[in-house]
């Protein structure tokens, strides 16, 4: 690595003025913003600027000359140069003043610049993304919620019935303010449906595991079934088994095309607490129960 003196092209005996003069001369040629097209300029400039930072500080220079510090670390931290922005659409400073004399109004340049200027003056606001968690029941029935924004404002969001986890709502014009006639951006609201302990969703159908008693399974009967829109009564046919599924027509999630899916009720037979003497006595004396083998097919 060459010494900072060599980098600036000055003698170790150079005065502070000479060092400044040498630096300015080099920096004008190397500063990335004054050389927007020269990719190599940035590295060279960092080198020279680092050397100048070291030698322009009288104390650091003295310590360097005395051998107390070396030239390492004499490098500028990374800087975001203006040229990195100026070429993109973010460059709202770029001007077309240099082309006013390029052809008439029909000219390609004139056309491009006019549009550029219009686009800058009338830029649409950014879309802003929010997340909103709702309950499973609300995802089926739909809900209105007020979202408190980071800036302190609020946003009323109407969630349509039947929305799915991960779906995004677009609220037109509720994003960041635009410039000029650009109009505001949109608010995009990503919906998270919180999992429910009872219900799961499969397309438009909703599934629930429903515990039933032994008597209800054997003899059948009316049972109360929760649905996201409230409880309903369902008839369990006599002789129902664990695992059999009953269908509640139209009790599922709303379909986009109209109508609703179904709720599927999966039965699960629950025995009473162990140690019921009457039940034990009955099963012991029940001859058919002893010979019945439900695993014949397995």
């Amino acid at each position: 690595m060459s010494s900072p003196y060599e980098k600036l092209g000055v003698a170790p005996s150079a005065s502070a003025e000479e060092i400044q003069k040498a630096y300015r001369k080099l920096a004008k040629k190397l500063h990335p913003d004054l050389n927007p097209g020269d990719k190599a300029a940035e590295d060279k400039f960092k080198d020279v600027a680092g050397a100048y930072d070291l030698l322009s500080d009288a104390d650091k220079r003295r310590r360097y000359d005395a051998g107390e510090i070396d030239e390492t670390g004499a490098e500028r931290p990374p800087q975001q140069f203006y040229r990195d922005y100026a070429g993109s659409d973010f460059g709202r400073y770029a001007s077309d003043a240099g082309y006013a004399d390029f052809g008439g109004n029909d000219d390609v340049f004139a056309d491009l610049f006019r549009r550029n200027a219009e686009a800058r003056a009338n830029r649409r606001g950014q879309d802003l993304l929010y997340r909103l968690a709702i309950s499973f029941a609300d995802s089926v029935t739909g809900v209105s919620q007020r979202l408190t924004l980071p800036g302190g404002g609020t946003l009323d969001v109407t969630i349509p019935p039947g929305i799915l986890d991960g779906q995004t709502l677009r609220l037109k014009g509720k994003g960041a303010a635009g410039m000029g006639k650009g109009g505001p951006g949109d608010a995009l609201i990503e919906i998270e449906v919180k999992p429910d302990a009872r219900f799961t969703r499969d397309g438009d159908d909703i599934t629930i595991d429903l515990p039933i008693s032994l008597s209800e399974a054997v003899l059948g009967g009316k049972v109360r079934v929760p649905t996201p829109t409230g409880d309903v009564t369902m008839t369990v046919p006599a002789g129902s088994n664990s695992g059999s599924t009953l269908r509640l027509k139209g009790k599922g999630a709303p379909r986009a095309a109209g109508g609703r899916g179904d709720q599927l009720v999966k039965l699960r037979i629950m025995l009473p607490k162990p140690g019921d003497p009457e039940l034990e006595r009955f099963v012991t004396s029940w001859e058919a129960g002893k010979t019945h083998n439900p695993r014949e097919a397995v």
Binding site: P36, G37, A86, A94, S95, D96
Partner: peptide
Amino acid sequence: HLLDQLHGLRRI
């Protein structure tokens, strides 16, 4: 002023 014109040109 000159840089802004330069960047306008570069963009085109």
